[in-house]
Design a protein around this nucleic acid. Structure first.
Lengths: 261, 261
DNA sequence: CGTCGCCTTGAGTTTCCTCAAGCTAGGTGG
DNA sequence: CCACCTAGCTTGAGGAAACTCAAGGCGACG
């Protein structure tokens, strides 16, 4: 089961030249940030690295050198369970901060795996320390972003704990769909989707067999359609009604945040 | 089901005189903090409030005025599900920061309920902003503490998603036991335990009926013993083996953190 | 001494799991 | 260009974990 994650391609780590500002373009909550804040953030990031599909960016129990800004591609954060299975705690999309949750511990709590060809920009512990000193505002936004993510995670947990397999799958698909749309606002209802049904099951506490049945149900009802590595949402409203997840409005005011220096 | 939470005692909000430093005494990761940092933290906190058992500190969808430091007592963070049920996302013990996850949103994502007679000290948004400016080190520790909590939450999620009801209950009991011990290091294996089996079920995605059966199993095997509002852990090792949760070491080095000003 | 909140126990049911086999599409080597 | 190979998806049948409903007990507190 877990050789899917442990049998790995060699990591290709090649530096990229990239317009620095674009690195942070999609950073969540970045609407609150001035271009000055973003430049600061960009300066603190290390050189971007490309990572092949299925390659591991950082393995569970590795020493923690810092976090990463995900620039391109999808990444999963997973833990090995003592029954040999895998639990996927998060899927990250471009603009997300990846791997920060391990910062408080001696060794990494989760394995970061590229689900598609990926680019990440490292944010070392030392630079993170600098960030807190040099830009209280940016630090506060980082904190807020972590709080927003905690709420989203709690919503998923509530779904896993309390709702049917069908609702859970619908909720996850919608969550990813909405996030992908936020990033590529221009795209139609078709979106890239590198997850396998096994991945979905590992995130929702379901077997891939059962995920397959649920998704087949959606396809038969023409709520979604699938092609290789992508799919099309035909009836988001129906999915949303089934998922029953609360709509959360992010506070874009932030008048209490420290001013840009 | 949810009248347990919605039928409320009137809130008694009376200021307390209290040695300020003791407020922060139990703050997680506070080993990293100097007494100067702690004084700073204490200055930023509002006057402590007492809250009766079962009273609501802040309700879901209320406007968010800030977070709280839990000084005394236990607090739950819960959300109402659209099937009428309740999901409890966190149990907080003295020293925990409570309600911070709602900071990024326009209205509170969860209801904070006192599970026992409780004292909380408010940390308003404005003071939180000051904190990021005046003490980068304290801000970073706050961030780290949030990361630590995120890992603990992910561990619980993995348990809910993937392990048996028995393991889940064992894991939750142990988690609370360990945390209670950390706070009151002196106490024996008996500890105050204000949760009902309904609460445990609401946190783990189980019915109270099933929680009862699982706990009966533990009692019959003499792993735990129960008295009113408290219980005794007789065989922590057996529970731990069953729970199968990873041991996480908090990094108390923190040499990359900003220095105290 | 009655009430109320909480726990217990039983019986029948549902949801999801396990195991097992087969299918499909895309990639690869001959 | 075809034949095979593999990863991932599908479908069925049987079983187990946890749920629902229901009734009763027990202890704390007014």
């Amino acid at each position: 089961m877990h050789n899917r994650i442990s049998a790995l391609l060699p990591e290709k780590q090649q530096d990229l030249e990239m317009a620095p500002a674009s690195l942070v373009r999609k950073f969540e909550l970045c609407g609150i940030l001035s271009s000055c804040d973003r430049d600061m953030m960009t300066r603190l990031l290390g050189p971007p690295k490309t990572v092949n599909r299925h390659a591991v960016i950082r393995r569970e129990n590795d020493p923690v050198t810092g976090a990463y800004l995900l620039v391109e591609g999808w990444v999963s954060s997973s833990t090995l369970r003592n029954d040999g299975g895998v639990f996927i705690s998060h899927f990250y999309l471009p603009g997300d901060i990846v791997g920060a949750s391990s910062l408080a511990h001696c060794s990494a709590s989760d394995t970061l795996t590229a689900l598609s060809p990926t680019v990440v920009a490292p944010l070392s512990k030392a630079r993170l320390g600098d960030l807190f000193v040099q830009s209280p505002r940016l630090a506060a936004v980082l904190y807020l972003d972590a709080m927003r993510e905690a709420v989203a995670f709690a919503d998923r947990m509530a779904a896993v704990a309390r709702s049917s397999a069908e609702s859970r799958v619908a909720a996850l698909l919608l969550d990813l769909f909405d996030r992908a749309c936020t990033i590529d606002a221009g795209q139609a209802d078709l979106f890239d989707f590198p997850l396998t049904q096994q991945d979905i099951g590992d995130a929702l506490g379901l077997t891939s067999v059962h995920v397959s049945r649920m998704m087949r149900g959606f396809i038969d009802r023409a709520w979604i359609r699938r092609s290789a590595r992508a799919f099309i949402v035909k009836d988001a409203a129906a999915l949303r009604a089934l998922a029953g997840i609360p709509r959360r409005l992010v506070d874009t005011g932030g008048d209490w945040l420290p001013a840009t220096r």
